[in-house]
Design a protein around this nucleic acid. Sequence first.
DNA 1: TACCAATCTGGTAGTGACTACCACTGAGGT
DNA 2: ACCTCAGTGGTAGTCACTACCAGATTGGTA
Lengths: 212, 212
Amino acid sequence: MPDQQSTLRAHRRAETQRAIQAHAVRLFTERGYDGTTVNDVAEAAGVSPMTVYRHFPTKEDLVLIDQHAQLVADRIAASPATQPLVRRIGGALIESTTTVTGGHGGGDLSTSGQFLLARLRLMISTPALRAKHLDNNYALQQAIVTALGDDTTDPDAAFHAHAAASACLAAMHTALVRWAEDDGRSELPDLIARALTAAFGDDAVQVRSDAR
Amino acid sequence: MPDQQSTLRAHRRAETQRAIQAHAVRLFTERGYDGTTVNDVAEAAGVSPMTVYRHFPTKEDLVLIDQHAQLVADRIAASPATQPLVRRIGGALIESTTTVTGGHGGGDLSTSGQFLLARLRLMISTPALRAKHLDNNYALQQAIVTALGDDTTDPDAAFHAHAAASACLAAMHTALVRWAEDDGRSELPDLIARALTAAFGDDAVQVRSDAR
DNA sequence: TACCAATCTGGTAGTGACTACCACTGAGGT
DNA sequence: ACCTCAGTGGTAGTCACTACCAGATTGGTA
């Protein structure tokens, strides 16, 4: 069965994709996003401009592509439906972020953490990237509402879910900005929890083990 | 003094700007945003493509430009600093929206209301417009935090303000989407109030005179 | 082993948004 | 009447992105 149908092919594809993205983020950081053409990225990665477009539909996706959304949606669907919306969503955001950043202990970041930080800085400072990233967050909001699984027939319930999800994601974005300003020195999950608390009040976030 | 320095000139400038935008929104609605070129808009408005770019820096701005942000910032600055953040911000959003939509009584919309609705529909359905609109909301968030006037030296206070502002704006955006889905039949200020309540709880929105 | 099919890659020639750079016109104030 | 300058238009160019087509490599098959 074609599950891992051609490991070699898939692996090579993933590898060139990773290489292109790495060169892109490096060049964007060095020369600026607008000061770097897609041709520059292709040349640096040793491929043709065509190949870049095959792996990344747009120039923005060279920075923005990740699989965070799927992670969050899965956590949402797995959360107990008895809790209030904001807590379900906020909890999923915090947990999935913990997975991504890895439970490193406060100090310096791993290589992947530095890469994430570089991408985040570009997202925040470059208007085109920031705009598309916010739109991706909007798509994530739709996914979250779907994953909540509450009855979609009641328009009021759907409205409630959308309002809660959008507000939670906005708070998370605020935490991401703060994290980038701190150069990743703080614990991102803690920052998200604090942002949620700041927006919704103390009862919005579940009591945690308080590892601070 | 050059306050109203050349009424005729300023008036003509504002008039062509308005005409270009009207034709743009009409064409985008008829043929789709991506299916309409800036040249098409220029031709329909009877000006050269150059002139369009003089008045609107980007194609997206043909739909997005408005002065809502200034209205909100003014209201924020005028709000009493004693109230909680979410209430100050939410109140300003509701009040400024009431100003924009005009206190019409439930039924059909004025011409300007229809125009606003058409623009909003484009913003929601067109990815490029949606992304830039969300980024404009992000800029508004910065403006709101500044207008709050709380001491900017304390990073924690600033973080709190950003989290609250972003969450409020997200809730408002949810209300805007719902309003567009209702074809503007509901009262937008009421929808915003409901979205804020859905996200933050009953105590987030001030009790209103209930003019319904 | 020879063959087929699908995928990966590269090239060419566009379209369309947007940006210099320059020239013309007409309104406002002296 | 003259000067200034904002407003407008034209040309040529850059760059993101998209068909359309062609060669190469890999995986499975007769």
